[in-house]
Every structure is written in C-alpha cells, then in structure tokens.
Write a protein that binds this DNA or RNA. Structure first.
Lengths: 220, 220
DNA sequence: TGTAGTAAACCTGTATGACAGGTTTTCGAA
DNA sequence: TTCGAAAACCTGTCATACAGGTTTACTACA
C-alpha cells in the first residue's frame, strides 16, 4: 500500500488520473497480484483511489466516507459519545459559518437559503427536513472554501442521521420546530449579508439549542 | 467489509475483542477467503481492526493514522493547501486549549508543561523541539477529553512534520524562537491555572504567529 | 497442584491458476 | 469520418498450496 501511495506521489497523479493495472503493478513491485489487490482495497477504503470492475484504478477526489466510518466506529465501540461529536461540530461550524459569510458566492447563498426554506416548507416530512438540514450544513462548509472542514463536517452526517430524528421528536411542539427552522433562516440570511460575526453567533445558538434538545431526549 | 463491520456492531465488540478467523468468516458470510482478506485489509486501512500474522483480527482503538493519510493525500493531490490546514487547526485548537483548562488532570498539566519546558531546553536541537511541539498539542487535545479532537489533531501531525522545519527556519533569530517557546509556556501555565479564556486566546495568538512564519517562508 | 516445555491445532500472508463478466481499444466496413 | 464488432485488457471471485507465526492443550516434573 505504501509503495502504491508513493508511486502516486512520484508520478504527480491527480484525481481522475489512472494508475497502472493490477497485473502491471504486480510486475513493477515484484509481488503477486493478491498483494496488489489487497493494497488497492486498502487505498480504496481510505477513498484515496477508486476501483471499478473492468476499469483501472483511478486517483480519487477527497471524500468523507472513510472519515464517516471511523467516527461511527468510535461511537459504536463506545470510544466517542454524542456530546463530544456535537461539541466538535459546534467548534467547527461556528467557524465555517463565519468563513462562508466572507467567501460565499451568490449561487452558494441561494443554495443555503433554499435548504433553509425547504426545511420550513416541509415541516410535515421530517425525513426531508433532515436531508435539507444536513445539506444546509454541508453547503455552508463548502462556502467556507476549506476542504478540511468540508471533510470533517461531511463525516459527521452518518451520526447526524441517527441522532437527528431523536432531537426532532424531543422538541415539544411544531412551534419549537419552526423556531429551529427560523434560526436556520437567520443563519442563511446573515451569511448572505456577509456578516461573519452574526453568522458565527447564530450558528453557535443553533448548536446550543440542538444540544439542549438532545439532552432533553436523554441522548447525551 | 460492510458485513464484517455489521458483525462487529451486532456482537457489541469493543477494542481488543477478537473477530472470528478468516476461515470462519468465509463460511459464515458464504464468500471465499480472498474476499474476507480484502475486506479485512480495508478495515485495517481504516484502523478499525488490527491484523497480525498468526493472530485473529481484533477490534482496534481509534487511531489517527488513517485520517493522517487522507489529509496528506489531499495535500499531495493539491486538494488541500497548508493555509487551510492551519485555519482548521487554529479553530479546533483554541477550543481544545479552553477545554483542557477546564478538564485537565494534574498529571496532564505536568505533561503539557514538561513538553513546553523541553522545547525551551533543547533549542539547539530542532528535531527534538518539533517532536515536543507536536506532543504538546496532542497532550492538550487529550486533556480536552474529546476524542474527536484528539483524532483530528493527531491526524495533522504528518503535515506538521513537513511544515514545521520551514516555519522554524523562517524565524529570524533564536530570540524569535524563544519567544515562540515562551508562548507555549504561557499556554501551559494558563491551562494549569484553569483559565479557559486565556488558554484559548493564547493558543489563537500562537497560531497567528505560526501562520505568519509560514507566510514569511512562502509556504502559504 | 502448579509450572514449564513441546507438539498439535489454529491462523495469517503470499503465490498461483482458473474463469466469469465488465471496460477499453482497435480495426474494418460503410 | 463514424459506427459497430471483435479482440485485448481489466477486475472480482474462487480454490488450492505452502511457509511461517500464534495459541491451545497436554504431559512431565517438582
């Protein structure tokens, strides 16, 4: 695996570029095809390469899938708890909201706003609200222009999908749910207005309320 | 791979617990041993399991190695730049410093202080200073009691090892290097004093100066 | 009864060959 | 020049074999 990673570096390969075929790598690195396959599987697990039947491996774009698995593993094996995830999210996402306010494009504004609006419009469909909620946060991360944050925040979505319904149900009424959505809307507006301080503050409040909801639900 | 991960979850396996042997998994999941091996390699690449010749696979503790590879891949393939890493570090590490001030044990204080002291004492040995610098940050992350932060910060050390010498050399004099170390010491002291606000502020300054040094070096 | 040593059983890591099915490239015809 | 088909390339899975490492069980001795 190390040898293949080194080879990608030496050849200055970029996302989308093709690696040599298994058979050729086997010859080049003087090991059996089995070892190459196992190494490629490892690299694929890390989303560093993409594999496909009949196709040669290609260098992959960054992808949060592997991060996501690791965080989930941490939770499943009781090495990480939900409160820790939310604290990390709050820390990072107050920053991405501020950066988004400074760096977003008009198209990104519209996307963020449309997710907030969709949450408001689809209050009767919690599943849809959840997907828009997740997309809302990821759109903000993207608008921050920092792929490190995009990766990390994207990686939390698996856990978020598990905790979100609990938080949603723990709110006492639809009015409370609407208030949550109104906060989303305010965040979107302050990002659109290019106000980093307000964006950060509002995002912090949003997380404080989400954490409180999970506390009320006994999840934390 | 998914099936094996599911199996770990269903059997409520914890770090150190043993998985069934390849041959047994092969029988249980009705696939050849090759497929099991490839899947286990994938899980090992993510540091979710540990493999060893002659030993059965065991569930692994969280480990930043895989994260580290992914961040490095991002940098090598020009998907992440150093400034983005430093911004993410600043965001997270101002928070870990604050949490450490609130949650650290006496032993953790001593460890953090000793790393800061060692940096001061070994100014003539940049390699040693770097290792203590990295350990200093990780010790603070540990004292934060949030393994999510520990993972992420630990994952940056590969990149840090590459950029640190450049930042060190870009400082104009040993006096400047001593000033950097003095700031480390101040951070350690404010964590020991249990002052989250000061810890956070000082860590922010530390990062501002490190980022400036890398700017001066033309790395950002 | 407890301990140490050894052998057997278990276990992984690597190699090889075979074959099914998917993808890409090449060549010939229109 | 374009399109279609065939050939070449390519991956995914399976099975078998063997080398070398680890764990377990058993026996002998104190």
């Amino acid at each position: 695996m190390t040898a293949i990673a080194r080879l990608m570096r030496e050849r200055d390969l970029k996302p989308g570029d093709r690696l040599p075929a298994e058979a050729l790598l086997s010859k080049e690195l003087q090991v059996s095809r089995t070892v190459i396959r196992e190494a490629l599987r490892s690299l694929a697990a890390l989303n560093l390469v993409r594999l496909g039947a009949g196709r040669r491996p290609t260098v992959a774009e960054l992808d949060d899938g592997a991060f996501s698995l690791m965080f989930e593993h941490g939770v499943v094996t009781d090495q990480i708890d939900i409160q820790q995830i939310y604290d990390a999210r709050r820390t990072i996402e107050t920053r991405t909201a501020a950066l988004a306010a400074m760096r977003r494009s008009e198209a990104e504004c519209r996307a963020i706003l449309s997710h907030a609006q969709a949450m408001e419009d689809q209050l009767d469909h919690p599943d849809a609200v959840m997907e828009h909620d997740i997309a809302f946060h990821i759109a903000i991360a993207r608008a921050s222009r920092n792929p490190v944050f995009v990766l990390i925040i994207g990686a939390f979505q698996g856990i978020t999908r598990q905790t979100w319904p609990i938080g949603w149900k723990s709110r006492a009424s639809d009015d409370e749910r609407r208030a949550m959505n109104a906060l989303h809307m305010k965040i979107a507006e302050s990002i659109a207005a290019g106000d980093p301080k307000a964006s950060s503050t509002l995002m912090g409040e949003h997380f404080d309320q989400s954490i409180k909801a999970l506390l009320n639900a006994g999840l934390i």
